[in-house]
């Protein structure tokens, strides 16, 4: 992203809203992580079992293998926590954004809002093909192509140190 870093320039308003977008997504993922970490009974089991669509079998088989489920649980809890923290602080921002996209894509693929599909977990809105997870993924793509970690974030110091 060296090119974007050196060549991109933002107006103040552009920077403010890009950073706010980054911080908000970070806040959301961080809290999702924290909630799972502090709940000793939390497991992705139910969510995975409720998978539908093309990859449902894959996600369900993750749930039913104890060892894999434990890894999935761990990756979810700490993945969300660290990605959230990274986005908020602007630390390893680009890496955090990419990890966020990957993690959220798993959620989207396991619960695609296809016509005629009902989930056990109640959904709080009405969705057809596009849902908030997809929008959050796309927002992260925006943050990938409009990076802000070095403009407002700890990454600024890292760049500095490299120099």
């Amino acid at each position: 992203m060296a090119k974007a870093y050196s060549g991109r320039d933002y107006a103040l308003a552009q920077l403010i809203f890009l950073v706010l977008l980054r911080v908000s997504i970070g806040w959301h993922l961080l809290y999702e992580g924290v909630v799972k970490i502090i709940n000793p009974d939390w497991s992705a089991f139910g969510y995975l079992m409720d998978s539908k669509g093309l990859f449902a079998g894959l996600f369900q088989s993750m749930a039913t293998h104890q060892g894999i489920l434990q890894v999935v649980d761990f990756m979810n809890m700490w993945g969300l926590f660290l990605i959230g923290l990274g986005l908020m602080a602007g630390l390893f921002t680009r890496f955090s954004v990419i990890c966020g996209i990957i993690l959220l894509s798993f959620y989207f693929l396991s619960h695609p809002p296809l016509a005629g599909i009902q989930y056990i977990i109640p959904q709080e809105g009405s969705y057809l093909l596009v849902n908030k997870t997809l929008i959050e993924i796309l927002a992260l793509f925006v943050l990938l192509v409009f990076p802000t970690g070095q403009a407002a974030g700890i990454d600024r110091f890292l760049r500095k140190n490299k120099n």
Binding site: Y5, S6, G153
Partner: peptide, 22 residues
């Protein structure tokens, strides 16, 4: 707004700008 030149007070503020959110 993205080009740090030399580490100065302004840079520090920008680097830590989002920490209050945490």
């Amino acid at each position: 707004l993205t080009q740090p030149k030399n580490m100065n007070r302004r840079d520090v503020i920008k680097g830590l700008a989002t920490l209050p959110f945490i």
